[in-house]
Amino acid sequence: MIPTVLASVTSTYLAYLTVTVGGPLLVVAALARYRGGLRTPVDALGVGVLMVIAFSYTFAWDGYLIERGVWWYGEGVVTARVSGIPIGELAFFLLQTALTGLWLYVIDPSPDPSRPTAVRSRPVGLLSIVGLELAGLVLFYTSSGYYLGYILLWGMPIVGFLWVLGGPLIWRLRRPVALAILVPTVYLWIVDRVAIGLGLWTISPTHSTGFQVFGLPVEEMAFFLLTNVLVVFGLVLYQWVVARTDRHDLVEGFRGLVPRGGVGKPPGEE
Results as ranks from 00 to 15, higher is better:
Ala178Met: 05
Gly131Gln: 02
Leu137Met: 10
Gly256Arg: 09
Leu127Arg: 10
Gly101Gln: 05
Leu26Ile: 12
Val229Met: 14
Gly264Ile: 01
Pro109Gln: 13
Pro168Val: 03
Pro168Cys: 06
Arg244Trp: 00
Arg122Phe: 00
Val106Thr: 11
Trp240Ile: 15
Phe59Ala: 04
Thr12Met: 15
Val231Thr: 14
Trp103Thr: 07
Gly167Ala: 12
Phe59Gly: 07
Ile170Gln: 06
Val28Glu: 01
Leu126His: 14
Leu99Ile: 10
Ile85Pro: 01
Leu198Lys: 13
Pro3Asp: 12
Ala7Met: 04
Thr185Phe: 07
Asp108Cys: 07
Phe59Asp: 11
Ser114Met: 13
Pro259Glu: 05
Val124Trp: 06
Ile66Trp: 15
Gly197Gln: 14
Leu38Pro: 05
Val70Ser: 13
Thr4Gly: 09
Val19His: 04
Leu102Arg: 01
Trp61Ala: 13
Ser83Asn: 06
Pro267Glu: 00
Leu179Gly: 14
Trp61Gly: 10
Leu26Met: 11
Gly131Thr: 01
Gln96Thr: 07
Gly166Ile: 05
Trp154Val: 08
Leu17Val: 05
Phe93Leu: 11
Asp43Phe: 03
Ala54Gly: 12
Leu99Phe: 15
Phe161Asp: 00
Thr206Gln: 14
Ser83Ile: 10
Ala180Lys: 14
Ile107Glu: 12
Leu235Thr: 10
Ala180Phe: 05
Ala180Arg: 13
Leu6Lys: 02
Ala32Tyr: 00
Gly69Ala: 13
Tyr105His: 15
Ile87Tyr: 12
Met156Glu: 02
Phe214Val: 00
Phe161Arg: 04
Thr142Leu: 10
Pro41Asp: 00
Ser121Thr: 06
Val70His: 15
Ile196Gly: 09
Pro217Arg: 01
Thr245Lys: 01
Pro41Ser: 03
Leu14Trp: 05
Met1Trp: 10
Tyr73Leu: 15
Ala7Trp: 00
Arg33Met: 08
Val130Asn: 02
Thr79Ser: 14
Thr18Phe: 03
Ile87Asp: 11
Arg244Gln: 11
Pro116Ala: 05
Gln96Cys: 12
Ser204Leu: 06
Gly262Phe: 08
Thr227Cys: 05
Trp171Ile: 11
Leu165Ile: 12
Leu99Cys: 07
Val236Ile: 13
Thr206Gly: 07
Pro176His: 06
Ile129Gln: 09
Ile87His: 04
Ala29Arg: 04
Trp61Phe: 10
Trp61Asn: 15
Val242Gly: 07
Ala29Cys: 02
Leu14Gly: 07
Ser110Tyr: 08
Pro266Glu: 09
Val164Ile: 14
Thr79Ala: 15
Leu127Ile: 05
Tyr146Cys: 00
Leu235Tyr: 15
Leu31Tyr: 01
Gln239Ala: 09
Gly63Thr: 14
Leu237Phe: 09
Ile66Leu: 08
Val138Ile: 02
Phe224Cys: 07
Trp61Tyr: 09
Leu104Ile: 15
Phe211Leu: 13
Leu230Asp: 06
Phe224Tyr: 14
Phe254Gln: 00
Ser121Ile: 13
Ser110Cys: 10
Ala60Leu: 10
Val5Asp: 13
Gly155Ala: 05
Leu65Cys: 14
Val242Ile: 12
Ile107Trp: 04
Arg120Gln: 02
Pro111Gly: 08
Gly136Trp: 06
Tyr34Gln: 03
Pro123Glu: 10
Trp154Arg: 07
Trp189Gly: 10
Ala29Trp: 11
Thr142Phe: 03
Thr245Ala: 02
Leu237Lys: 15
Leu152His: 03
Val138Cys: 03
Thr185His: 05
Pro259Gly: 06
Leu127Pro: 00
Tyr16Asn: 02
Gly48Asp: 04
Trp163Leu: 09
